[in-house]
Every structure is written in structure tokens, then in C-alpha cells.
Design a protein around this nucleic acid. Structure first.
Length: 854
RNA sequence: GCGGACGUGGCGGAACUGGUAGACGCAACGGACUUAAAAUCCGUCGGCCGAAAGGCCAUGGGGGUUCGAUUCCCCCCGCCCGCACCA
């Protein structure tokens, strides 16, 4: 028997697919389209097993949809700008572009070796001038449409990467990439006004437009956008206190204006202007403010920080109660960046205010009475009550619910002319300026007389200049040191001017690549007709680490591109799937050094060092990472088992949304499977030649059609592990079907080869050819299950007595309830267990018979 | 603290809208083939009692609804993820 040799077979089929341009996609309005997209990779230089899993999933869907008759778009490209290229330049002296291009070439070869059904003719990198020039055009259109602003603002400055970070890129006060503690700096920034769309970005999460997104991602986006409805209003300074010059009271934001009668103080942030005003003449206040600003923003610091404050020498009037005044404090738990940087404290119904009031002896007044509580005995002395109830101690609000109270309070504030209802957002506008070289230049020119002017469209692209590799060894941005590029005449007045030296955040690059894949054109960003055909992406697949940033920005870009006439979709990704990670065991030697898996041998369940024989300490199973050395190289796996086995394994063991642990035993099992399929098909050379549709019902035919129905349903629902389990079941039946009729066997093999094709495409082609199939199996139509063969003529029903299984009966599928009952009661075991008499019999046709006995 | 997901054999995991818990795979064990090993093939495989037939227990724990609960409801416990002094 010929052995299956993936080393020969796999490259052979990849060559044939490529020679025949099998996966080349053409726009074809007559056919239904299906756009499958996996998040494109950053060209780090090597693919890892996580990529294999991600792209294998997309490939299963793409190949399956192709077979179902869809015109499938499945492209690939490179998220190619960004800091690592500049870091590499600093360390190795390679130019960022050369480094990036080399990495792309390496990774392209590795990805191609996976046998993915990708239309490589659409490939591009975001650092291609032909891509980023159209990004500049989009930016100019956005600018014209009013979506762009230049703002001087405090920014998050990463002192290691020497660049600005978006809020989203600051994690627990540290840079998302460098891990350095982020500083605050004031800079002029280019800003995309994504908050203008906050309402719609939020509404789409819950109005059905994102119904096929995972719940956790929708929740994260909802949190991030962070809508809170409430009131903004002004406390006037109380008569008799010295009103500070230049201030017109204290403006606060609250979501609970209904609790205003319970207010016992007003508090402002340490960096609030009012605090600064008083600190100027009071060193102890200034010291307190400095202390607040020093305290960390880490989770622990926040968790353990005490509520602290200092009273200011000023009081304000209560807007609803004549002659009632409230003290004004600086408090360390008030954020200047949210709302107005000032609040009123209602200790009875907010725990933070309660802590503060307790510490400083401020009054605690309950104003919300939970249902069923007695106003005489109800107390908030120990803990704030934040739930719903009826308002009391609250003047004109008495008796109202919290919700009605909020409305009534806002109405009164408006009537008094001190405030209004307002919605606050946690979402901030998107600062897109980066002080880096390796990015898309922002097409703007700074003129001393005309100010900031857009680069005229006819002058696009603004190309990155040629810069010597050594330039990157000097900190800072080489663009600012390249006079030939930097100095240009002003497009408006012709005077000497300078180019903008900031480049775009790379999240801009990845915000519209999906549209460029679908509808790229040499003369514009996207072709509207092609975009209308292909978009939205039907299935988007990627890691959950992009749940907020990338996905939110891309959603906004789709809206902005639609508003500027480039697209007609607001939501770019109809279905989203976030796959789990690939994990691997970790190992350390006796000195605590991490070891590569291949350095470790497992004997009798104990880990030893392969070379020295020393004992090895097994660590936890973790996400593969270079630092812990728990990585396996895809090409090594492909070399020993073939990529089909690797693809099969990463999909077989766990549900796709969950992490999967990479084990040698697991991939070895997949390798055995590949061989089993080949060995099973090998003796039946040419079996498909005289293929005639068989008639009648046999065990093999029923198994064949059950497998077709099951695998189809599982792929449709992204349950690849279950699809694979069903294929195993089918194989087990097929293997034992020695006595099956030739026609039945041929039908089974024909179904099998098409069902495995999305998972193990090379093997499927080889088997298909061997069996005498015509053309490519990847072009063959998806098999269709015969409903008649899925219906069983007899069924086995479990028989329970008092809910406990006591036996089973085999009975005609269309047997009546009475017949089933009779057969069940005739069982010996049933008679024994129901000796005391039968009270009732429940028959669920096709399922179960349950006898209720005395 | 808020939000989301989850908890089933030695392991990864199945179980459609409540209806035979443990499909399928891995590991392990026994056997066949082999000089031997690998590969392959056959078989066993949740726990306890039992020679067997069979019985009892069992889906994190405790209650409830139901003829029947891994599935629905309530209360706990544990783990993972995201956000976090957001007023």
C-alpha cells in the first residue's frame, strides 16, 4: 500500500491551485457574495501557531462557502507600518522599509505554505504608497466634512517609544507596547471626532446591527463608549462668601439630580481651576494637590486609596432650598477628565460620597426610600443605598420614583436657568498624531501666514522621503530632520512653509483595509460599486485583543467613509468571531531558566532535560510567548506532519472561541487521522468513475447523509470541533463497512472527500484525484444530505420508571403513543420496578417513555 | 465595585427548543502482529458494591419547579476575561 507523503503531496497541490488561479476572485453581481476576512497580520517576520488557527478557521469558512456556490472573497495583506520596524532600525541598523519588506516576504511564504484559499492578487501592505496615498485622500475628505480637528490638549506621552498614545493604548497608566509609565504633555494633536458618532456607535450594538457579534465584545464596546445621562448645572456662590474673581459658581455633572436634596457638599478635582485658584495663596492646599497628583493610577493604588479632601474657603447655595449652603471641597477621587471635574456629594446614595462624608463628619441625609422600608427606621448611616425607591425628605420631589425624580429635577434646574439635562460620554475623540517616521504622513502644511492648510489633492501622495538607515539611531522623528522633504511652499500663498511631520496612528491604516481589499482601484480609495457588492464583510475573524480599539475605529471609519460618499455601509463587519489562543505547557530547569519544548522529554510522566537528564519543573499552560519559550514553529510541525495535520489539530480539540492547548500527542493524533483517511481510500482507486446515485437505505448511506447534515450544520455555526468529531464517527462507520455495496461506498467516499476538503485541503485533493474525481475537489459542490435517509424507521426509546432509566424499547418511528406505552409496560424491568402499580405514563414520541409508579 | 463568560471522567470536550449524561478525540490499561520496538489492528476505560445479573452515587455546593433538570428559577462557592474612584 502506498504511504501518504505530505511533503510531496502538499506542495504539489499548492502549485496546481496557483497555476490555475483557482482562488482568484472576480466581481460578479449575478452571484451571491461572501466576504471572509481574518484580521491581517503585523509583519513581525514569523507566523506562529496562533496565526495558523486564525487563518485555518477563515479558510474552512471560505472553502465551505465556495463549495456552496458563493462568490467568495478571501484576501490577505499586511498591517505594515508601526514602531517595531523603527525599533529594529535602532537595534540592527536595517532601514524600517527594508526590514518590513523582508518580513513580509518571509511571512508570505509561510502563509502560502498553509494552503489557504486566498486571492493573493489583492494583497497589499499598508506601507505601499498605493495604499496610503488613498488614506491621505480619505483624510482630506474627512477634513472637508468637518470630522477632523487640531487641538492642543494634554496627551499621553510614552517616554520610551517617544510618541503619543491614545487613551485606549494606555493600560493601567502604562504604554500598551513599551510598558513605560505614561507622562502627561501638552501637544498639538490631529483629532478625528469620533464622539460625534457616539450615539450611533452605541445604538448599533443593541438595535440588531451587531447581533452576530460575541456578547463580550459588544459589552466591552458599550462600556468603552460609556454613555451616562444626567444633568449639568451650576451651584451659585452663597451670599456672604467671598466669590473668587473670574468664577461663576461651580458647575457639576451628575447622573442623580433626583438626590439633590440629599447633597451635603460640593467637591472639585485636585486639578480643577477653582482648586488652583485657592492653592495660589495657600501653600498647604498646594501641597495637598501635589500629593494627589503624585499618587499612582494603578489598580492597587486606586483600590486602597482613601478618600481624602481639603475644604475650600467658599460656600455655594443649594439650588432648591433657600438659605441652605454647602461647603466646597477638593477631593482626591474626582477626575478632571470626566464631566465638569466637579460633583455634588450625596453620601446617603453614593458609596464614595459616603466614605468621604464619614471621614470628614459631613451630614448624611437619606432621600430615597426602598420599597417596603419604614422612613422612621430606614438608615443609610452605615452604607449608601444606590437602588430604586421613592423620594422623600425632598421637597417638591417627594413621592416620585428615582426615574421620575431625575426628570423633575432637571426640569426645575432648566426653569431656574442654572442647568440642563446632558449626556456624558466616556469615549474620547481619537488623537491620531504620532511623532514617528514609519507611518502614513498626515497631508498638511504649516504656513506662518495661512496657518494649517491641507495638501492639495493634486499633490498627493505625500510620500515618505528616502532616509538613511543610520538616521534611526538618533532619537526623535527623522522626518523633522529631512529639510528637502520638510520645506515646501504654502499651497495657498506660496510662502515658505513646513510639512506636518506627524504620521498617522497605525490604527488608521487598519480602519479601512477591508474596503480596499474588496474594491481597491488605482484612481481612488475604493470603487463604490464594487464596495456595494462586497461589503459588509460577512465573516470577520480575529483575536479578542482587538475588541475595542480596532473594531471601534473601523466602525467609525465606515460611517465617515459613507458620509463622504466612499461607501454605503455603517457597520463594516456583519458577523464577528473572536477565536481563542493557542497555549502550551511551560518548563523551567533547576536554575529557573525557561526551556523550549524540544529541550524537554517526558518519561513516566516526569519531565527531564533532553540533553542533561536533569529534572525539569513543569510550569502552567500559557499563551505561547517567546519570553517563556513555550512556542512551536509552524514550519517544524509542517515538516514532520504536514500542514493538513496542523490545521486539523488546531481546530479539533476545543471550541474555536476557547483556548486550545498545543500538545505533541494532539498533533500526532491529527497526523494519524490523515493517514487513516488515505489508507481507507487507497484501495478504491477510481471508485468515483462510475459513480451512480445509489438507491435504498443502508447503514452506510444513513451514516453518510447524517455526516453531511451534521458537518454542514456545525460549520455554519462555527463549531469546528464538533464537525471534526462527526467526521471521526463517519470514518468509524465507513471503516467497518466491508460488506457495503460498491455504489454506497463510492457515495460515502465522495461525500467524505468533500467534507474534509475545508479542513485538510491537500489530502482531500490527493484522495479525490486517486478516486478518479474530475477537476479540483475545492471546485466541487458541497454535498447535500438526503432528508429521507436522515429519518429513522425505528427508534430506540429509553424507558424510565420515576425518572430513572430502567430499560429501552425499539419501536417503529411512527408508532402511536399507545403502542409505545404498551411495549414499555411489557418490559420485565419495568414490571419489577413498578410492582406497586402504575399511576401515569408519559410518552414523548421519539424521545422517552416515563412511567410514574406508586 | 460594574459588566461578560464559565464550572461535566485522568485530560480536551459532547448532550438540538428540559427527555438514555459522558458522543468524538487524547492519555492509560489488556491483547494480536513483531526477534524487539514503532506503526497498525481488536478490546476495556466516571466512582462505589457485586462472581454476574444488577444496584447505588455522580454534571462546583445547597434548595426549588417538573413525570423527568448538565439544561429553567433562587442562594452560595470557585475560576477566567474586560472596565474601573466615570459622579
Amino acid at each position: 500500500m502506498a504511504r501518504y507523503n505530505p511533503k510531496e503531496v502538499e506542495p504539489k497541490w499548492r502549485r496546481r491551485w496557483e497555476d490555475r488561479e483557482v482562488f482568484r476572485t472576480r466581481d460578479d453581481a449575478a452571484r451571491p457574495k461572501y466576504y471572509v476576512l481574518e484580521m491581517f497580520p503585523y509583519p513581525s517576520g514569523r507566523i506562529h501557531i496562533g496565526h495558523v488557527r486564525n487563518y485555518a478557521m477563515g479558510d474552512v469558512v471560505a472553502r465551505y462557502k465556495r463549495a456552496c456556490g458563493f462568490n467568495v472573497l478571501h484576501p490577505m495583506g499586511w498591517d505594515a507600518f508601526g514602531l517595531p520596524a523603527e525599533n529594529a532600525a535602532m537595534q540592527t541598523g536595517a532601514h524600517p522599509e527594508a526590514w518590513t519588506r523582508k518580513n513580509i516576504a518571509d511571512m508570505r511564504a509561510q502563509l502560502k505554505a498553509l494552503g489557504l484559499s486566498i486571492d493573493w492578487s489583492r494583497e497589499f501592505a499598508t506601507c505601499d504608497v498605493e495604499y496610503y496615498r488613498w488614506q491621505q485622500k480619505l483624510f482630506l475628505d474627512f477634513w472637508k466634512a468637518g470630522f477632523v480637528e487640531r487641538r492642543e490638549s494634554y496627551v499621553n506621552w510614552d517616554p520610551v517609544d517617544m510618541t503619543v498614545l491614545a487613551n485606549e493604548q494606555v493600560i493601567e497608566g502604562k504604554g500598551w507596547r513599551s510598558g513605560a509609565v505614561v507622562e502627561r504633555r501638552k501637544l498639538n494633536q490631529w483629532v478625528l471626532k469620533i464622539t460625534d458618532n457616539a450615539e450611533d456607535l452605541l445604538a448599533a450594538i443593541d438595535d440588531g446591527r451587531l447581533k452576530d457579534w460575541p456578547e463580550n465584545v459588544r459589552a466591552m464596546q458599550r462600556n468603552w463608549i460609556g454613555k451616562s445621562k444626567g444633568a449639568r448645572f451650576r451651584f451659585r456662590f452663597a451670599p456672604g462668601t467671598p466669590a473668587p474673581a473670574g468664577f461663576d459658581g461651580v458647575e457639576v455633572f451628575t447622573t442623580r439630580p433626583d438626590t439633590l436634596f440629599g447633597a451635603s457638599f460640593v467637591a472639585v478635582a485636585p486639578d480643577h481651576p477653582l482648586a488652583a485658584h485657592f492653592a495660589a495663596s495657600d501653600p498647604s492646599l498646594a501641597a495637598f494637590i501635589a500629593e494627589c497628583q503624585k499618587s499612582g493610577v494603578s489598580a492597587e493604588a486606586v483600590e486602597t486609596a482613601e478618600r481624602k479632601g481639603r475644604a475650600l474657603p467658599v460656600e455655594v447655595s443649594h439650588p432648591f432650598v433657600k438659605d441652605r449652603t454647602l461647603p466646597v471641597w477638593i477631593a482626591n477621587f474626582i477626575l478632571m477628565t470626566y464631566g465638569t471635574g466637579a460633583i455634588f456629594g450625596c453620601p446617603g446614595h453614593d458609596q464614595r460620597d459616603h466614605d468621604f462624608a464619614t471621614r470628614y463628619g459631613l451630614p448624611i441625609i437619606p432621600v430615597v426610600l426602598p420599597e417596603g422600608e419604614d422612613p422612621q427606621t430606614f438608615s443609610v448611616a452605615k452604607e449608601a443605598f444606590t437602588g430604586d425607591g421613592a423620594l422623600y425628605n425632598s421637597g417638591f420631589l417627594n413621592g416620585l420614583s428615582v426615574e421620575a425624580g431625575i426628570e423633575a429635577a432637571i426640569a426645575r434646574l432648566e426653569q431656574q436657568g442654572v442647568g440642563r439635562g446632558e449626556t456624558q460620554w466616556r469615549l474620547r475623540d481619537w488623537g491620531v498624531s504620532r511623532q514617528r517616521f514609519w507611518g502614513c504622513p498626515i497631508p498638511a502644511i504649516h504656513c506662518p501666514t495661512c496657518g494649517v492648510v491641507p495638501v492639495p489633492e493634486k499633490d498627493l501622495p505625500v510620500k515618505l522621503p528616502e532616509v538613511a538607515a543610520e538616521e534611526f539611531k538618533t532619537p526623535g522623528n527623522p522626518l523633522a530632520r529631512t529639510p528637502a522633504w520638510l520645506n515646501v511652499p504654502c499651497p495657498d500663498c506660496g510662502a515658505a512653509a513646513r510639512r506636518e511631520t506627524d504620521t498617522f496612528d497605525t490604527f488608521v491604516d487598519s480602519s479601512w483595509y477591508f474596503a480596499r481589499f474588496a474594491a481597491g482601484r488605482p484612481d481612488r480609495p475604493v470603487d463604490r460599486a464594487a464596495a456595494d457588492y462586497w461589503l459588509p464583510v460577512d465573516q470577520y475573524i480575529g483575536g479578542v485583543e482587538h475588541a475595542i480599539l480596532h473594531l471601534l475605529y473601523a466602525r467609525w471609519f465606515a460611517r465617515a467613509m459613507t458620509a463622504t460618499g466612499h461607501l454605503s455601509v455603517d457597520e463594516p463587519f456583519r458577523r464577528l468571531f473572536t477565536q481563542g489562543m493557542v497555549t502550551h505547557a511551560t518548563y523551567r530547569d533547576s536554575r529557573g531558566q525557561w526551556l523550549f519544548p524540544e529541550e524537554v522529554v517526558i518519561e513516566d510522566g516526569r519531565a527531564r532535560h533532553a540533553a542533561t537528564g536533569d529534572a525539569v519543573e513543569p510550569g502552567p499552560v500559557e499563551k505561547m510567548s517567546k519570553s517563556k519559550k513555550n512556542v512551536v514553529a509552524p514550519e517544524v510541525i509542517a515538516d514532520s506532519y504536514g500542514v493538513d495535520a496542523a490545521r486539523w489539530f488546531v481546530l479539533s480539540d476545543s471550541p474555536p472561541e476557547r483556548d486550545v492547548e498545543w500538545t505533541e500527542a494532539g498533533v500526532n493524533g491529527a497526523w494519524k487521522l490523515v493517514n487513516r483517511i488515505w489508507d481507507l481510500a487507497e484501495p478504491h482507486k477510481g471508485a468515483l468513475a462510475g459513480l451512480r446515485p445509489p438507491a435504498g437505505s443502508s447503514e452506510l448511506r444513513r451514516a453518510t447523509h447524517a455526516a453531511i447534515a451534521g458537518v454542514t450544520d456545525d460549520i455554519e455555526h462555527f463549531r469546528f470541533n464538533k464537525a471534526i468529531a462527526r467526521l471521526y464517527e463517519f470514518l468509524n462507520v465507513l471503516k467497518r463497512a466491508d460488506a457495503a455495496a460498491e455504489a454506497d461506498r463510492a457515495e460515502a467516499l465522495h461525500a467524505l472527500v468533500r467534507l474534509i476538503a475545508p479542513f485538510t485541503p491537500h489530502l482531500a485533493e490527493e484522495v479525490y484525484e486517486h478516486l478518479g474525481g474530475q477537476g479540483f475537489v475545492c471546485d466541487a459542490p458541497w454535498p447535500k444530505a438526503d432528508e429521507a435517509l436522515l429519518v429513522k424507521s425505528t427508534v430506540v426509546l429509553a424507558v424510565q420508571v420515576n425518572g430513572k432509566r430502567r430499560g429501552e424499547i425499539e419501536i417503529a418511528a411512527d408508532a402511536t403513543t399507545a403502542e409505545a406505552e404498551k411495549a414499555a409496560l411489557a418490559l420485565e424491568e419495568v414490571r419489577r420496578h413498578a410492582a406497586g402499580g402504575v399511576k401515569k405514563v408519559i410518552v414523548v414520541p421519539g424521545r422517552i417513555v416515563n412511567i410514574v409508579a406508586a
